[in-house]
Structures are given as C-alpha cells and as structure tokens.
Design a protein around this nucleic acid. Sequence first.
DNA 1: CTGTTAGCGCTTTCAT
DNA 2: ATGAAAGCGCTAACAG
Lengths: 370, 370
Amino acid sequence: MSAAHSGEVGAEAIRPPGATVRRAPSRSSRKRESSESLNQNGHRVTIDQVAREAGVSTATVSRVLAGIGSVNATMAAEVKRVAATLGYRPFGAARDLASGHHRSIGVVVPDLANPYFYDIIQSAQTAAAKDGYRMLIADSGGDPATELSMCEDLLSQAGGLIVQSSRMDVTALKSLAAHNSPVVLINRVEYGVDLPHVGVDNFSAMLEICHHLTSLGHSKAVYLAGPASSWQNQERWRAIQQARMMGLEATAITAEPTIQGGYAATDAALVERPTAIIAFNDLVASGVLARLRELGVDVPKKMSVTGFDDIVFAKFTQPALTTAVTPRAVLGEQAWKILKARLNGHALPEVPLVKAEVLIRDSSAAPPER
Amino acid sequence: MSAAHSGEVGAEAIRPPGATVRRAPSRSSRKRESSESLNQNGHRVTIDQVAREAGVSTATVSRVLAGIGSVNATMAAEVKRVAATLGYRPFGAARDLASGHHRSIGVVVPDLANPYFYDIIQSAQTAAAKDGYRMLIADSGGDPATELSMCEDLLSQAGGLIVQSSRMDVTALKSLAAHNSPVVLINRVEYGVDLPHVGVDNFSAMLEICHHLTSLGHSKAVYLAGPASSWQNQERWRAIQQARMMGLEATAITAEPTIQGGYAATDAALVERPTAIIAFNDLVASGVLARLRELGVDVPKKMSVTGFDDIVFAKFTQPALTTAVTPRAVLGEQAWKILKARLNGHALPEVPLVKAEVLIRDSSAAPPER
DNA sequence: CTGTTAGCGCTTTCAT
DNA sequence: ATGAAAGCGCTAACAG
C-alpha cells in the first residue's frame, strides 16, 4: 500500500509549492499551561498523531474509533493499538463541533438532595448512555427564575434538555419552548405550551388514596401540600377536592416538601382535628410520622397517614407507609425516548401519563370511634 | 466608524482577488436535519450573524459576551441587544475547541440511588457552577471494570473527574493516574497512587463508635460490612479490629450496602449472639432496625444498632439512629477546590481527612444483663 | 475501502 | 479599543 506513509517528515514536506504561505502559526506559543488531558510532553494527543503513527489517514482513524463504515481488519487493529499506546482520547468538543451537535443532554431538577429525582436521573442516564449521550445535571434550587436561566445556559452545551418538575410559570415555559430546542418536561403538564412531557397520573392515584380513606370511614382530612407552583401538587390537590363527592372533607396546609417540613407542619394539621393526614409525598409523611410518634398519637389507630411516591424508605418507616408508587424509572426512560426522537427529527412518540399504583401498608386504617 | 459594515452582501464580495479559490463549500448540503438549537429557518444562529447584525467583528461579540477585555459601552449594549433578538446561544463545543479545554467535569458514583452521594454531588455542582463548569454524572453501578472505562470515556468530554468511593483496584487506579488528567478521588485513599483525594476520617469515627459501645458495656458485636473493595469499609473494619484492645470482640458479615441488605443480613448477625450490631452505613442500619422490629427484638434494650453517615433519614428511624456525621457538603467543595487548582495548573491545596462527629441517639444503650 | 480536505463556530493572537 | 484571521481537533463529503 502506497498510502500517505509519511512518517515523521510528512505534512510539511508535501505541501504544494504554489500554495499560499500561511503565516507561521503563532498558535504554538499559545498558553497551554492548564494540563487537562495532555500527554507526557504536555501536548494533547490528537487524531493526526495516531494517524501518522499508524500510517493511515485521520479519516480512517475516525472510522475505526467510531466503528462506522468498513475498514480493513489489520489496519483497524493497528490503529487501535497505536491509539492505546499513545493514550489517545478524542477531544469531545472537536467531535461535537465537526458533527454539528452536542453529545450531552442537560437535566435540571429542583433539588438534587431529594431522593425522588435520582431514580429518574439514573434511568434516564442509563438509557441515554446506551445511545452515546452523557448527562449534564444542574440543581435549580426550586427557583423558577434560576430554572429558566439554567436551562438557557445548559442549552449551549447540551443537545437537549430534560426538565424535572418544573416550577417555571407559563410565560417562562413558553419562552423556553420558543427556542425550538429539544426539551422534554417531566411531571409538568401545561396545555398551550408546545413542549412534550411525560408524567405520572397524580390525579387518579390521589383520588384512589382518597377513596381508600373514605371506604375506611374517614371523612375529615388535612392535606399537607407541596409547592404551589408544582404541577404534581396541583393535581394531587385537585383530586382531593374532587373526593369531596365521596364524602371527604379536606383542608390544605402548605409544608416544605421535606421530612422537616412534614414534621413542622404536623401540629398545625392537628388543629383541624382530622382523622387522616394526606401528605404531599413520602418525605413529608415521614416527618409527620416522626412528630406523631413524639406526640404519642398512634398511627394508624388514632390517625391515618398517607404518602406519595414510594421512595425506598416508605416501606421501612414505622408504621410502613401507605403510598402511591410513582414509577420513576419508567419516567426516565420515556423522557429519553422522546428526547431522542426529537434529536433525530423523528415523530414524537405519544406517551400517556403513567399510572401510579396505590400501596396500602400499615399507616392507614379505620378512624377511631367518636 | 467605518467598520466592516458589510450588511448582507459582505463576506463573499470583499474576498481579495488574489486569494486561493477554495472549492465551493459542499458543506452547504451537509445534513442538518437534527434540529438541535436551530432557529426558525432551521439554521443555527452563529456569532458571525450577531457580529454582522451588530456591525462589529466576531472578536468584539466574543469579548462582550465573555465579559473579557474592555469594549465601548454603546457597542456592548448593541451587541447584547442583537444577540438577544436573534436568540443567539454560543455553541459550547466550538468554544471549548477554540479555547482548548472542556467546561465540564465528570462525576462518577457507584450508585446514584444511594442518598449518601446526593449532598456531595449537590455541593460539588454548586461550587463548580460558580466557576462556570457544568457537571456530567455517571453511575458505575459499583462495578470496578465499568468504573474505569466510564472514567476514560468521560475524560473525552470533561476537563476533569471527581470519582466517588472508587472500587477500582490499585492497578486500574494507576492506569487512570497515568493519563495525567485532572482527577480527584473522594473517599478512596491509596498510597502509592498519584491521585489527589479528599475523604472522611472513617477510622477515627468508627473507633469512637466502638468506644461508645464498650463504655456502655458491650463486648460482643457484629459488623455488617460493606463492599470489600470499598476503602471506607476497609477503614471502618480496621477501626473495629483496633477496638479489640478496648475489649470489643467483633466478627464481620458482609451485607449489600442497602436497606434490603441490612434487612437480609440481620438473621445471620443474630446467630453470633452479639449485643450490638455495627452497620456499614445508615442504609444497612435501617434495614437491621426494620428486621429487628419484625423479630420483636427491642432496640436499644436488647440490641444496640449503629449506622454511619447520618443521612437525612437517620434521625427519623425508630429508634433514631446513633451514627457518625460525615460532612458530605464539605467533601464536595473540597473536591472541587482541588480539581479547580489542578485545572488551572496551581499547586494542589493540602486537605486533611474530614473529621466525622459521632452522634449518640436512641439506637444504642447498655447491653441487657446476662 | 481509503485518503484528501473543507469546514464546524468560536477564541485569541496580532496588528492597527 | 477593535478587527482580521489563524487555527482548535475532528467528521464527513467526495474522489478515487
């Protein structure tokens, strides 16, 4: 093969004499003190070096490493060997620029310290990784303004976005949609906003919880509500209100969506003299349980408590929590599926809200006789 | 200002006649169907468009948007206005390529579903974001082999790596170190491997837990061990063995580092007839508590149980868990501090292992009389 | 099947 | 203070 086997002399020598003489590359003196992924000599190993060393063209190296097209087996092996020897790792930015799209997707969540989000992140990450995408994550702290700018920001490094339980108002959401970038919402449904979403059918599940309670004989409950801007909270509360027709009287008291929040709000809830406390989620319910125990209120004999989500701990609280299983892994996969379709310009698959199964455990029972 | 105000005709027209004629750009026909961040017309808004529209050079736009160097205030305002109007968002890959380094760091954890890692991830993310870095996260699933390849992989998209509780063996760690890339380890100390680390002083904290137990009168305990390849587990076990000189006899039984794991391993632990069960972490301890409750074994009267980490739930278990507070947020910040120094070519700051404070709650007490 | 080569969009000299 | 222009390292036409 009389390939461009130029060895060490190569490139410079074969430049045609008539070519415009380029100004000597001042670049050689450009600062390069930040040592990120450089080899021993302080230089990044590039695809050109691999190509030269292996006696092939950069195109071939690219093909071999990407596993695209067909290449002579011997050649491929040699390329791989050289790449390994040199410790070559492609420079992602160059690849993305050349191919015209980022290989990362951004994920923004309201609170990285909340276990609820991790199951979704985990499954989305696994699914995306399978397709060669990495995941950038960011914590908006639950602040709507931060959330929007965070999204805008990520969009310059990511090919698409998965936005979890967005707290943005409709205007912000619309302005995000106007970017025309691949974005999918998780657990935020907003008609009139042109953004695909996946989510849990909170309404049905909460209605079922209410039904469970009324069939047990409860008629007076307190809802420890989550953030007002949260769609999930709105849906859950809507269901509880709907349950009035089943004979369930309920008032809402806002609580921080954390264990501490539930703990702190319990006393206020008790003032209403309910026989059941419906918590926004399992975190809140756990806090309620803890406070009730302190207060000596027997659960479920004197008070029924329900959660939502079925986080790992729900099964191990004392007593074990009655809750609704929101299939988080499914949500993550669905979100990626839609995003992927969007990235590839395919038609978006229709995914209905995911049903949440209600799990009756030990924290709910018939109300005490009055 | 007679700037290059070329309007729409611009570029092509002013090309000097003597210049080498480039082959007509076949690029115009290159596929561009993947709609990622394109504007209405299906084209990405580039810095050139902004520059042209604003009647300045791309260099100026770059300066304005990066806030670097000094630019005429009026001009800057105009550039910003145009950029906003056009919906311009810089293409991260191009920026990274031009500047020579990635603006992301990779974070790999053994298990994204483990709450222990949340606080670390969150604080590291916040700290890094402040310096303009994004965070790529990946879940290795706790598999050493996957972990290494995952790191290699990330290194082509990230400027540096934070590796949590690495389970890689020394050889793998060394090969990672050999890349000479900015990597910092969290909770994995390996002398002889040239990689900076931050971590918790597991040994001292566990020794203190043991001391707490012996001073209560315990002399026979079972350690529900974590993964053998985990440095934290090794350190904790080392402390327990050390505690023999304080009169604590202990045997180790391996358990999955999860609630389920603790639950499942409890029966085997009981066979040893200990008066105390020392769990690898809070998750395991929670499982133990759940099983013990089922079995009717009173904690702490009949059995003392201790955890490690002080995850949010530790305070709310029944009874509340005696544990060691590992300051996760501090770890995340320290890790970023070191990584940043490394990325900038500064000297690495020396950070000693973080002390963990032992928190005596209700799950530990004097052993029953025999 | 393989090599050549033109850019991808941006930053950063360097010259003005 | 501003502009011109040279690439950063890689991919993907395109031509053989």
